[in-house]
């Protein structure tokens, strides 16, 4: 492994778990999250490995957010397709194909046992946020990006970042208060 490869390896090792956690919260499926991170790593290496290492982090998270958005769009398309398909079926006893979309973490009892209950509540609330709010909140609060960097990563204006972030906070607070009751 040469020096450039070692540097890239260290960078990816540093971000891979956090990237997977963010993607998992965003798409709510561990395997899809893994695919997203894998694709993000390859894209970074193929397109931007020659850029200065200081640029890798913002580029990596921008690619990650794009892949998360692509994953949501694919699911929406599949959902619409299956809805259309079902609309044409009269006597359909088979399960709804849309139900094969990944189950929420809360539906996986084995995993729930492992999770600390308060962490589980927060993760569940995060998962319930709309995609943009989720992306903005994760980058700002978890990744610690500033407004400008978040705007670049998500591909929206800085004003939009502030709006999504404040809405995400309000919704999270409401969801957690409801869960505490």
């Amino acid at each position: 492994m040469n020096a450039a490869q070692s540097e890239m390896d260290r960078f990816l090792a540093d971000v891979e778990r956090q990237a997977w956690s963010m993607a998992n919260v965003a798409v709510n499926n561990p395997d899809d999250a893994l695919d997203i991170v894998q694709d993000t790593m390859l894209t970074l290496v193929r397109k931007y490995a020659t850029r200065p290492a200081a640029q890798w982090r913002p580029l990596f998270f921008r690619i990650l957010q794009n892949r998360i958005r692509d994953c949501h769009r694919r699911r929406q398309r599949h959902g619409r397709l299956f809805s259309l398909f079902n609309a044409f079926r009269r006597d359909d006893d088979s399960p709804d194909p849309a139900s094969f979309t990944p189950a929420r973490d809360s539906d996986e009892p084995e995993r729930r046992v492992d999770l600390d209950s308060s962490r589980d509540r927060v993760l569940e609330a995060l998962t319930a946020l709309p995609l943009r709010q989720k992306q903005v909140f994760l980058l700002r609060a978890v990744e610690g990006m500033d407004v400008a960097a978040t705007a670049t990563a998500v591909g929206v204006s800085q004003g939009s970042v502030k709006t999504h972030y404040s809405r995400a906070l309000a919704k999270l607070r409401r969801l957690l208060e409801e869960a505490d009751k």
Binding site: L34, R46, S118, L123, L126
Partner: peptide, 29 residues
């Protein structure tokens, strides 16, 4: 929220596949 995401357990299998993905990406260089 930060703690919840960061302390989210990464299953062993996912951790192993992440390392493989990283190795494959670095090999491409």
């Amino acid at each position: 929220a930060k703690k919840s995401v960061e302390q989210q357990p990464v299953p062993d299998d996912i951790g192993r596949r992440l390392r493989l993905a990283r190795a494959a990406a670095v090999d491409e260089m």
